[in-house]
Write a protein that binds this DNA or RNA. Sequence first.
DNA 1: AAAGTTTTCTACCGTTCAGTAGATAAGTCC
DNA 2: GGACTTATCTACTGAACGGTAGAAAACTTT
Lengths: 195, 195
Amino acid sequence: MALGRPREFDTDTALDLALHVFWRKGYEGASMTDLTEAMGITKPSLYAAFGNKEDLFRKALDRYVDGPGGYFRTGLEKATAREAVEHILYESVEAVTDPRNPGCLAVQGALCCGDAAETIKQELMARRSKSEDDLRLRFTRAVADGDLPADADAGDLARYVSAILQGMAVQAAGGAPREQLRKLADMAMRSWPPV
Amino acid sequence: MALGRPREFDTDTALDLALHVFWRKGYEGASMTDLTEAMGITKPSLYAAFGNKEDLFRKALDRYVDGPGGYFRTGLEKATAREAVEHILYESVEAVTDPRNPGCLAVQGALCCGDAAETIKQELMARRSKSEDDLRLRFTRAVADGDLPADADAGDLARYVSAILQGMAVQAAGGAPREQLRKLADMAMRSWPPV
DNA sequence: AAAGTTTTCTACCGTTCAGTAGATAAGTCC
DNA sequence: GGACTTATCTACTGAACGGTAGAAAACTTT
């Protein structure tokens, strides 16, 4: 067993609680007091277990990508581009309309910010860019597989799907109900693949 | 002429300078020191002229809607729904890709935030909702005018265009270049009106 | 010139921010 | 039991936050 006094809280559940605070308030809007109160631990415990605020956010973000945001990765593994987009769009609707945490952490975590949060903003920009690139690669493969037209531009399609996803995230942050975003996904799918 | 010592700065240009700080850093990310330094005035002058931080933001937001965001209103006045959407989409591309202030103030001003900025978040949510409703009303008229199919759902179309606009704003905040967003607008227009 | 009004300035207010020092408690290892 | 290690607690940094007091300066009015 580990040496020294055992930790009295579970780091994974504490990280989940921190994640939900960042999700609701954003990186800047979440104070260390907000976080420690939600996590049920004191500040020294938090700093000892997770490093500083920036470290904590990055760990929460990783957990977000593997947990509530996991539909993105599973969607990419679907057999066709159409199935992939369908899965990602509709699962995203469910994720961003969770009434306890509306919106998407990768979008609203630090869309713009003061100087102190600049590196977090950059990190989120890079993650969004990476997601779009994953979509692009998936669509490139789809063109080769023949489940997208030969003249389809994978980059354009990836950007289009990303924009729809991000638009849905903003709408959800504004309180849009699940049913309306499903209709938005319907519209996007109805014209897939776009001409 | 006005009584008392004359003001040494122009309120409109000072408000423009404040607007650009809020645009780049968001409501929470913009400190009063950021604002006064950009505006070239001291804090007491700012408070005397504009009220508190919240008042200043609201005034800057009004100026945004009438200035850089004015394309929305002019777009609604176009003859057909198609022309309206076309105008709004392409003008929005230009606005959100201004390299000095990427993105859209109504989206990134306070997409999510701490408790202190909650009322500002609500204000921006209401403005986005109002814009979507303006689109919906315009499309309803378009159905009556016959420049949209009789079975078109004005609400769905408005939500779709809003999502595209907001998606573009997020992409622009992430540094997407103008040319790529133009292609995104192209895609949205190519399938207009959506089936 | 004197009174009245408003802006400007420096210096400051109390609060909250992220982050930490130092003592104590709770375990393991020998 | 005693040495060692690590977590927990209270209390506290210094800096930055939004916002203001009070005196001096600049104008108009009489």
